[in-house]
Amino acid sequence: MARTITLTVNGAKVTREVESRTLLVQFLREHLELTGTHIGCDTSQCGACVVHVDGRSVKSCTMLAVQADGAAVTTIEGLAAADGTLHPMQAAFREHHGLQCGFCTPGMVMSAIDLAQTHPTLTETAVREGLEGNICRCTGYHNIVKAVLAGAEAMAGRAEAAE
């Protein structure tokens, strides 16, 4: 059954008609052509599809688009500033080479930002546990963890500077 939904995606209001069974990740990729959010598995395990819904990280392959009606969604495309300046977490992934093939990277970055926002002080153990829901099949975890620690520090620094 088709329904009309209205939500905010990366700061812009969008209204679309979707089937009840449309997954949020299909809506983002196929209806809005925001293909930065990836699909890596069918079992809700890999985390390549992680986006933020009302500020918290969720797997967009395990949520219906209709469930996001009225919500604010942020995808990897919504992180960088209008002038192209990368989000501190994105910059940290580049600086620390926190990727190999890059397929898992959008989900890693979205999960990492939520992790940094909900944990004022992050340890290496907390990062490794916090990224349990994101799988990197290049197994490049070492640099990802370094990038997340650096990115979290940069985010905290930016928050302090703004105060």
């Binding site: 992680v50 969720v58 797997k59 395990t62 999960s111 939520d114 992790l115 349990e132 829901g133």
Partner: peptide, 9 residues
């Protein structure tokens, strides 16, 4: 339970 994203929903 599960992982952080599962726990958020």
């Amino acid at each position: 339970v599960g992982d952080a994203q599962v726990r958020n929903l």
